[in-house]
Design a binder for these strands. Structure first.
Length: 895
RNA sequence: GGGCGAAUAGCUCAGCUGGUUCAGAGCGCCUGCCUUACACGCAGGAUGUCGGGGGUUCGAAUCCCUCUUCGCCCACCA
C-alpha cells in the first residue's frame, strides 16, 4: 500500500486484483458482514443465457443492479444479489445445431441422448464465460449461490409446479392453433412470436359458386392457405350474401366443394365481407371451423412445406413458392380479382426471426386467467410499484388480455415434460408424475414419456423461490423470499417479470418483489437497438480494457435517467466513455494529493476525543466544504433511493470535481505546506470529506473508490469500502451561512479572474482589487478568506473602500458588492464602457420587468406572500447592482 | 387500429410540486495557461424563438388542448 501512486490512473492494473480480493473475502455474501444485523435486501439477477457473451444490455442491466445492491449493502442491509444462468432452450439448441451443421450433421444424426450430451458439453464450456465477464465489470453478486435452470434442484421445482398446476386443473393438454417456427421446428408462446409490420399484399380471389351463377370474392394475405380451405364465411346479417348461406362454392385449384357458412366473427365492412376459412392454419378460422364442425385440412409440414393433403403438384413446395404458384393458377383461371399492397403485422420467431406459421397441434398449456387475477390485484392495491410508473400500464394491459400459455416445445434441450402415456392398448392412461415412471400406474403396462420439453421461461418464472431451494423449506428460502427489487429491460416484462409475480403469488402466496425498475435499451446514435446483426454494438469488455470498468459503469449510469434509453456511439467511444475515465483520473489525482498529505491518521473532526477538532478551529472554507459534503450526502442518498442513479452520479461528480478539487484543495494548499496555520484541521477536513465522497461514489465506481479508500492511513488491512457504513447526515447549524459567505468569496475570485482574462493580463502578473459597497457580513467573509482570495485570484492586494483610480475592470457580485481591478492607462476605456453598458442594460431590463411584476396588483394579492417577498428581494438586489454599475460608468466617464 | 412516451445548446441529456438552480450539465467549440494532485488538466468565453399554434394563470420549458415529427408496447380486419 505504500508504493507511490502513478499520476495517471491505470484501471487495468488494479481492477482484477481488487475483484479477487473481494471474492476471497466473501464480501458479496449476505453472511459476510455484520451477521444477523439489518433487514435482507434481495435482487434476483435476470439469468443470462448460458451461451451468452456480454453485451451492453447486460452491462447496463447489471451495473444498475450492482449499484443498488452495493448501496443497500453499505446501508447495512443483508444484501443478496442472486445470480444464475438460463439453459435457454431454443437459443442454446440452435447454437449447438449450428455447430453440428458445420460438421455436416443434424441433431437427428446424433439422436436425442447424444445430442443432449453434446449440448451439456457445450454449456459446460460457455456457461462460466458470461459470469466471468460480469465480474470484470464489478458485479458483486453472491457467486457461491449461482444456479443453473437445469440444475437438479431447479428441475425438481419445475416438475413440482407442473404437477401441482396439473392437479389444480391449470395445466392442460389442448389441440389448438399455436405459433410455430418452421426453422426451429417447435411451438412458441404468443410472446415468443414477435409481431413485426411487413409490407405484404392482399389477394382478392374469386371462388365460383357451385351452381355456376357467379362467384364470391375472398381476400387473403396468405393465398397458399386456400389449399386447406373448408368453408367460406359471411356475416349472418349481411344482406349481400343472405341467399348464399348454406350453399356451396367450388374451391378453385383444389377443385373441392366447400360450404358457405354464417358466422358473426366476420366483419362485413372489411374487403368483400366474405372470408375464406382455413381451420388448420388460422386461429380465427379454427374457431369458426369449430362452431360449424368444419373439417380441418392441414396442408403444411412442420418445415412449412406443402403437405400430402394438397394436390400433388404443390406437395413439397416451400410456403412462399406455393404462394406464387397458387396466385399464378388463379390468374390463369381468371379468378384473381385484384392484388393490393397491404401492410400488416406478422409474427416472427424471437430466436431466429423466421416468419411463424399458425399451426394446429397438440400442446400443453397453462390456464393463465386464474394466475393473472391476483397479479393484477397486487398492482392495483399498490403492493407492486413500477419505476417508471407508466410501465404498470403495459403490465395491466397484458394481464387483462392474457391468453393461455403454450409451454410445450418440440425441442430436446430443456426440462422434459413429466407426463407419461400408457402404451397398453386398452388403457392409454395419461400420468403426470413428480417422479419418473417406468410403468403405467393404472394398468402396469409400458409407458412412454412425452417427447417434448418445457418452455425455458417455465423454469425462469420460478427462480425467485426455486433458486433458494424450494420446494424444500430451506433457511435461504425463509430468509430471502420475498425479495425486493427487480431490475430488468422492458423487453422481458411479459416473458419473465410478470410471470414471476404470478408464480410467486400462486406458489408462495406473496409477490417475489415489490419494486420493478425497468431501465431503457442501449441504442446507437440513430436510436437503433444495439445488436449483433446490425453490427452496431459496443463490446463492454473493450471499454473496460480501454477506459476501465468504473468508466464504463459511470457512463452507463450518468447517461441514463429513469426509464429512458441509453444512447452510445459505436463509432466514437471517446465521447461516451472519456468523461468517466477523466473523472476517474481526476479522482485518482485528488486522492493522490490528499493521501500524500496524510502521513498519519488525521485528527477526528468531531466527537469527545480530546484531539478532536473544535468548532472554532474551522475556517470558513472548512465549514463550507463540510456543508457541501453534507448536502451531497443528502442529495446522493435520496437519488439512489429513488433509482435516480444519474442524479446520484451527477451530484457526487460535482462535489468531487467542482467543490472539493477546484476549490477546497486549492484553498487548503498553503495550510498543508505549513505557510499558514491550520494544517492539521485542513487534513482532518480533507480526510473526512474525501472519505465520504468515496463512499458515496462506491456503488457506481467500486474499483477506484476501493483502491483509494484502502490507502487511508490507519485503515485496517482487511477493511473494505464495499462493506463500509453509508455516510450519515451531519448537518451544521451554520451551513447556510457558510454556503453564502464562501459563495461570495468564490464570486469575488471568479470576477477578478474574468477581468484578468478580459484584459489579457498574463497569468503570472499580480493585480490589485478594490471592493466597495461591501456589507459587514461579506467583509467578514473576505477577511476570513483573504489569503485564499489573494492566492486564487493572484492578487497583490485586496483593499476596500473608495479609490482615486478610475480606469480598470469592474464587476458587481450577487449581493451588490462592487469589484474594481485597476488597469492603469493600458486599457481601452471605451471597451470597458461597452462591457459595463451591456451589463447595465441587462440589469435595467430585469429591474423594469420586476417592477412591473410587483406593480401588478393581481400578483401582489394572489401570489403567496413568501413569493412576493422573494421577488421584492430580487428587485432590491438587481437595483443595487444596477446602481453600482451606473456609478462606475460615471466614474469612468462613459458617455 | 388501440395504448404510452419523447421533442430544451452542434451532440447526449438534466430541469421532480408552475415562481431563487430557470434557461443548466457533460462532450464538442473559441481564448489563455506545461501554476510542484491531475494537459484524462486549470482559468475564462460563445451558443437556445425550451418542436409549431392556441389556452389556463398574477406568473408556463413546467399544467391543458391541438398540430407536426420521432420512438415504444399491444392487436386473429382475413
Amino acid at each position: 500500500m505504500s508504493e507511490p501512486l502513478a499520476p495517471q490512473y491505470n484501471p487495468s492494473s488494479i481492477e482484477s486484483g481488487l475483484y479477487r480480493w473481494w471474492s476471497e473475502r466473501g464480501l458479496f455474501s449476505p453472511e459476510s458482514h455484520a451477521p444477523g444485523s439489518g433487514e435482507p435486501y434481495v435482487i434476483m439477477m435476470p439469468p443470462p443465457n448460458v451461451t451468452a457473451m456480454l453485451h451492453m444490455g447486460h452491462g447496463l442491466n447489471n451495473t444498475i443492479q450492482d449499484v443498488l445492491i452495493r448501496f443497500e449493502r453499505m446501508r447495512g442491509r443483508r444484501a443478496l444479489w442472486l445470480p444464475g444462468t438460463d439453459h435457454a432452450g431454443i437459443a442454446t439448441q440452435n447454437v449447438v445445431e449450428r455447430e453440428l451443421a458445420e460438421e455436416g450433421l443434424t441433431r437427428f444424426d446424433l439422436g436425442r441422448d447424444a445430442f443432449v450430451e453434446r449440448v451439456w458439453q457445450h454449456v459446460r464450456e460457455t456457461g462460466p464465460v458470461i459470469l466471468e465477464q460480469l465480474k470484470t465489470i464489478g458485479s458483486s453478486a453472491d457467486w457461491s449461490r449461482t444456479y443453473f435452470t437445469l440444475d437438479e434442484g431447479l428441475s425438481r421445482a419445475v416438475r413440482e409446479v407442473f404437477v401441482r398446476l396439473y392437479e389444480e386443473g391449470l395445466v392442460y393438454r389442448g389441440h389448438y392453433i399455436i405459433s410455430w417456427c418452421p426453422r426451429c421446428l417447435t411451438a412458441l408462446s404468443n410472446e415468443e412470436a414477435e409481431k413485426a409490420e411487413v409490407d405484404g399484399k392482399l389477394w382478392h380471389l374469386r371462388y365460383p359458386l357451385a351452381d355456376g351463377n357467379g362467384y364470391v370474392t375472398v381476400a387473403t394475405t396468405r393465398p397458399e392457405t386456400m389449399l386447406g380451405d373448408t368453408a367460406v364465411a359471411v356475416h349472418p346479417d349481411d344482406e349481400r350474401y343472405r341467399d348464399l348461406i348454406g350453399s356451396s362454392v367450388r374451391l378453385p385449384v383444389v377443385d373441392r366443394l366447400i360450404p358457405v357458412v354464417a358466422d358473426p366473427a366476420v366483419d362485413p365492412s372489411f374487403g368483400s365481407g366474405a372470408v375464406k376459412v382455413t381451420p388448420a392454419h388460422d386461429p380465427a378460422d379454427f374457431e369458426i371451423g369449430r362452431r360449424h364442425e368444419l373439417p380441418t385440412v392441414d396442408i403444411m409440414t412442420p418445415e412449412a412445406r406443402i403437405s400430402l393433403a394438397a394436390p400433388p403438384r404443390f406437395q413439397g413446395l416451400d410456403r412462399y413458392e406455393a404462394r406464387r404458384r397458387v396466385v399464378a393458377e388463379f390468374e390463369t383461371l381468371q379468378l384473381l380479382e385484384r392484388v393490393e399492397d397491404h401492410r400488416h403485422a406478422v409474427g416472427h420467431c424471437y430466436r431466429c426471426d423466421t416468419v411463424v406459421e399458425p399451426r394446429l397441434s397438440d400442446q400443453w398449456f397453462v390456464r393463465m386467467e386464474p394466475l393473472a387475477r391476483p397479479a393484477l390485484e397486487a398492482y392495483r392495491n399498490g403492493t407492486l410499484q413500477f419505476v417508471p410508473e407508466r410501465r404498470g400500464d403495459d403490465y395491466v394491459a397484458w394481464l387483462e388480455g392474457i391468453r393461455d400459455w403454450c409451454i410445450s416445445r418440440q425441442l430436446w434441450w430443456g426440462h422434459r415434460i413429466p407426463v407419461w402415456y400408457c402404451e397398453a392398448p386398452r388403457c392409454g392412461q395419461t400420468s403426470v408424475s413428480r417422479t419418473d415412471l417406468t410403468s403405467c400406474p393404472g394398468c402396469g403396462g409400458p409407458v412412454r414419456q412425452d417427447e417434448d420439453v418445457l418452455d425455458t421461461w417455465f423454469s425462469s418464472w420460478l427462480v425467485p423461490f426455486s433458486s433458494l431451494g424450494w420446494p424444500d423449506s430451506t433457511p435461504d428460502l425463509s430468509r430471502f423470499y420475498p425479495g425486493h427489487t427487480l431490475v430488468s429491460a422492458p423487453d422481458i416484462i411479459f416473458f419473465w417479470v410478470a410471470r414471476m409475480i404470478m408464480s410467486g403469488l400462486h406458489v408462495m402466496g406473496e409477490v417475489p418483489y415489490t419494486r420493478i425498475y425497468l431501465h431503457g435499451v442501449v441504442r446507437d446514435t440513430l436510436h437503433r437497438k444495439m445488436s449483433k446483426s446490425l453490427g452496431n454494438g459496443i463490446d463492454p469488455l473493450e471499454v473496460v480494457e480501454r477506459y476501465g470498468a468504473d468508466a464504463l459503469r459511470y457512463s452507463l449510469v450518468a447517461g441514463m435517467s429513469v426509464g429512458t434509453d441509453v444512447i452510445l456511439d459505436p463509432n466514437d467511444l471517446e465521447t461516451s466513455f472519456a468523461p468517466g475515465r477523466n473523472f476517474a483520473n481526476k479522482l485518482w489525482n485528488a486522492g493522490r494529493f490528499i493521501l500524500s498529505n496524510l502521513e498519519s491518521p488525521p485528527r477526528p473532526l468531531a466527537g469527545n476525543d480530546p484531539s478532536a477538532v473544535q468548532p472554532d478551529e474551522l475556517s470558513l472554507a472548512d465549514r463550507w466544504i463540510i456543508a457541501r459534503c453534507d448536502a451531497t450526502v443528502r442529495e446522493a442518498t435520496a437519488a439512489y433511493q429513488r433509482f435516480r442513479l444519474n442524479d446520484a452520479a451527477g451530484t457526487i461528480y460535482h462535489f468531487i470535481w467542482s467543490d472539493l478539487a477546484d476549490w477546497y484543495i486549492e484553498q487548503v494548499k498553503p495550510r498543508l505546506y505549513g505557510d499558514v496555520q491550520g494544517g492539521d484541521v485542513a487534513r482532518a477536513v480533507l480526510a473526512q470529506t474525501f472519505d465520504v465522497a468515496l463512499r458515496l461514489l462506491h456503488p457506481i465506481m467500486p474499483f477506484i473508490t476501493e483502491a483509494l479508500w484502502r490507502r487511508f492511513p490507519g485503515r485496517p488491512a482487511e477493511a473494505s469500502i464495499s462493506v463500509a457504513p453509508w455516510p450519515k447526515l451531519d448537518a451544521r447549524a451554520e451551513a447556510p451561512e457558510a454556503l453564502r459567505a464562501f459563495g461570495l468569496v468564490q464570486e469575488l475570485v471568479s470576477a477578478v479572474r474574468t477581468i484578468r482574462a478580459e484584459y489579457g493580463v498574463s497569468p503570472g502578473q499580480p493585480v490589485r482589487a478594490v471592493v466597495s459597497e461591501v456589507s459587514p457580513e461579506t467583509a467578514a467573509a473576505f477577511e476570513q478568506e483573504r489569503a485564499t482570495i489573494l492566492r486564487l485570484a493572484k492578487l497583490s492586494e485586496l483593499s476596500s473602500g473608495e479609490t482615486q483610480e478610475r480606469i480598470g475592470g469592474h464587476a458587481v457580485l450577487s449581493d451588490g458588492t462592487a469589484v474594481f481591478v485597476p488597469q492603469g492607462e493600458a486599457i481601452d476605456v471605451s471597451r470597458e464602457c461597452n462591457r459595463l453598458g451591456g451589463e447595465v442594460d441587462r440589469l435595467l431590463r430585469l429591474v423594469q420587468s420586476q417592477e412591473q411584476k410587483l406593480g401588478n396588483a393581481q400578483f401582489v394579492s394572489r401570489a403567496p406572500s413568501d413569493v412576493v417577498e422573494r421577488e421584492r428581494q430580487k428587485l432590491t438586489t438587481w437595483k443595487e447592482q444596477w446602481e453600482v454599475l451606473v456609478k462606475k460608468r460615471e466614474l469612468l466617464g462613459c458617455s
